[in-house]
């Protein structure tokens, strides 16, 4: 009896010792892990600090200005490019019997008879500092205003010379009209080309891939293939062709037309 109880206690003590050692080793291991994690955190924090410093260094206004003058064709904003918010008319509702431009185009709801708003009208009151005077965006992007506006300020791939003729407000809409009858596909591609020369809006329509993509991998739409070779010449006739046949503009857009023409007049 005596021996048994002694054995029991001995076993208990041994088990406790074993558990203790086990736990102690586990704790030690965890603490080592914690230590290495702490070191890692410190390293990351230091890296963040360095990256922050580098970010500010790269954002040095002097450097940005020289980069902007090298790669952009934008000029500092002038006072005449700002208009008050109440001057801008509401976006006109498309007439119900608008010409169905989107027969062959699938997501063409945005090409409906909506006159383009000049981008600076939207940008001016909220972000004057970043409201770059990109008058040609209005025509290039057609009616895709909300989506393309932010991307207009992204870093552009290639600056295109700003053509005064593209500043006529009806130009953005015009290509859709002849396109509806003759060939559904070319109209958007021409537009896409012009857009590609500018900052590309980041919403490629699934049915029509961007010209740059088609150039590398020829896809099913054969008509788009010939376009990328001559980007500028292709875009120019489109804009010119648009001028003679301006759409029947709603009355509300008329003042905007005057406004846009004047804003871009002195360029």
């Amino acid at each position: 009896m005596k021996g048994k109880s002694a054995l029991f206690w001995l076993g208990l003590a041994a088990a406790a010792g074993g558990v203790l050692f086990q736990t102690s080793y586990e704790v030690q291991e965890l603490e080592d892990k914690l230590g290495s994690l702490n070191r890692q955190i410190m390293d990351e924090q230091e890296a963040i600090q360095i990256l922050k410093a580098e970010w500010s260094y790269l954002n040095d206004p002097t450097r940005l200005e020289s980069l902007a003058s090298q790669h952009l064709q934008l000029q500092p904003t002038e006072a005449r490019q700002f208009v008050a918010m109440d001057v801008v008319p509401m976006r006109p509702v498309p007439p119900p019997d608008a010409p169905k431009a989107g027969d062959g185009l699938k997501n063409d709801g945005k090409h409906d008879g909506v006159a383009p708003l000049p981008p600076m009208v939207r940008l001016a009151p909220s972000a004057p500092g970043t409201a770059v005077a990109s008058g040609s965006n209005a025509t290039n992007n057609g009616g895709i205003i909300p989506a393309s506006l932010p991307s207009g300020m992204a870093t552009p791939a290639k600056p295109a010379p700003i053509k005064p003729s593209t500043l006529i407000p009806g130009a953005g809409k015009a290509p859709a009209l002849p396109a509806a009858k003759a060939a559904p596909a070319p109209a958007p591609t021409i537009k896409q080309v012009d857009v590609a020369a500018r900052p590309t809006p980041s919403q490629p329509t699934p049915s029509q891939p961007m010209p740059t993509q088609t150039a590398s991998a020829p896809s099913s739409t054969v008509k788009t293939l010939s376009v990328p070779a001559a980007k500028q010449p292709a875009a120019q006739p489109a804009a010119v062709a648009a001028v003679p046949a301006p759409p029947p503009a709603p009355k509300a857009t008329d003042s905007i037309g005057v406004l846009v023409a004047r804003l871009g007049a002195n360029r």
Binding site: E31, Q45, E46, S56
Partner: peptide, 29 residues
């Protein structure tokens, strides 16, 4: 011996100086 590192503690002992828009003017590395 091991304490968890503080989340927001900067790894340096001198505060940054920033401009009114938060751009860094001086920092410690």
């Amino acid at each position: 011996q091991r304490m968890a590192a503080e989340i927001d503690a900067p790894p340096v002992n001198r505060a940054d100086i920033v401009d009114r828009n938060g751009n860094l003017l001086a920092t410690s590395l």
